[in-house]
Design a protein around this nucleic acid. Structure first.
Lengths: 237, 237
DNA sequence: GCCCAGTTAGCGGTATACCACTAACGTCGG
DNA sequence: CCGACGTTAGTGGTATACCGCTAACTGGGC
């Protein structure tokens, strides 16, 4: 039902977020198209989408590569999240209705349950869902479209660094939920800020380590360097 | 030098921002491609870019149309700008170097000069440039990529409503500049917030008027309603 | 007249093929 | 042995052509 472009987009996005494709890795249209068994057109469109989302860098007339992730990028991401997550929390506190609160609460239950079962994957998923739900409850569609690319970056970042203690996150989420449910916008904003800010330093510290200097212009040549000069099939007499 | 896609993108963006193409207007690939004298491929890519920027809505299997602009959209836009412009101002105050301050100051001079000459177009351009410059000075690249779509929306909005008094804007910009130059992040943030917030009500009030209910799914049919049934070339006997 | 199913035009989605640009490779002169 | 320059493989950019989905038309039955 869904178009090829969307399949390709989802596939590549997953691979990038889960760091199956490493930052700086080159994305050659013909190769990927052949591998995913589609033509170049839908593949190109998927690359453009990923580029708009910031997961891929496209150098004009040169090609595409998986976005690098420098410490500066990490810092920028946290700067922006400290603004937008706070806005989302504030709006959610002001506008949440019974239905929205119920959905938020469901996320908390789900996470708490996952923690009890020690299911890390499910915990992370539930916590991520909680954040998305806050944005939805905020009732600001634009905020949603802005947060989507940030979420993708963040998930990738946590794949590269490993997340903070999920149990502690749950506790912070409960606190934030209480503020939203109580309609206390200032308190919700403060909670959201601390929640984001607390993750900053540990993540940044880890980022300093794995970052490699990648220059998109240098990575994307128009022609590959000669591949290993043909393995010698037979010894020369 | 630049690719066709970019030409098409710029052209359509200008037409949408300047409301030469009205909100809700349908964008048929073949027609536009013929008009701009390119094939559908670069045209499609341009539409995707505009869609990522929020100026165009693409309905799967149906086609594209110029994004509508409801009062809710206006509200959302101001919510987000109140967050991000504040962040930009705060970071700029913390990080501005002599060079950045000089560029900011140049924008102010340019605007002041334009006001004196009563050159409205130039005033608006200089004021817009001032805002972009703050983002650049903030040193947060991510913030720049997030603000770009917002700028486009905002310019379009002011085309639909007509801007506030440019002279007053200049005064507010001078105040903001002083705070940034003094390295006073809190004061810069407060200035930026008021600067955005003051524009909210008047703009929203105007928006209530011109907004028409547009349902993207209804607008994009796969087939046009029969065009006027062939002008009668001759009277029937 | 009204409603329903088959038909068909319109238009987005995709594949294929060609063109244009870039930089690695080979070659020639110093 | 080394640097400048033409050559060419490799890759992104674009055009053309076809496919398939959707909904407006159309004609028959009630």
């Amino acid at each position: 039902m869904s178009a090829l472009r969307d399949r390709v987009y989802e596939t590549l996005k997953r691979r990038i977020v889960e760091v199956e494709l490493r930052p700086g890795e080159r994305l050659v249209e013909r190769d990927l198209a052949a591998e995913l068994d589609v033509s170049r057109i839908p593949l190109r469109e998927a690359l453009r989408l990923l580029s708009a989302e910031g997961l891929v860098v496209i150098v004009p007339n040169r090609g595409a590569l998986v976005s690098p992730f420098t410490p500066a990028d990490v810092r920028d991401l946290f700067d922006v999240r400290e603004s937008l997550e706070v806005l989302a929390a504030r709006l959610a506190a002001e506008r949440a209705d019974a239905d929205g609160l119920a959905r938020l609460h469901a996320c908390l239950e789900r996470a708490r349950d996952a923690v009890r079962r020690d299911d890390r994957r499910e915990t992370v998923a539930a916590n991520a869902e909680f954040h998305s739900e806050i944005v939805r409850v905020s009732g600001n569609a634009l905020l949603g479209t802005l947060m989507q690319p940030l979420d993708a970056r963040l998930r990738r970042l946590f794949r590269l660094t490993s997340d903070r203690d999920p149990a502690r996150q749950c506790a912070e989420h409960e606190e934030l939920y209480a503020a939203i449910a109580g309609g206390d916008a200032d308190r919700a904003a403060a909670c959201a800020f601390r929640h984001v800010a607390d993750g900053r330093e540990p993540t940044l510290a880890l980022a300093e380590r794995w970052t490699a200097d990648i220059d998109p212009v240098k990575v994307t040549h128009t022609r590959r360097r000669r591949t290993a000069p043909q393995e010698p099939t037979a010894a020369r007499p």
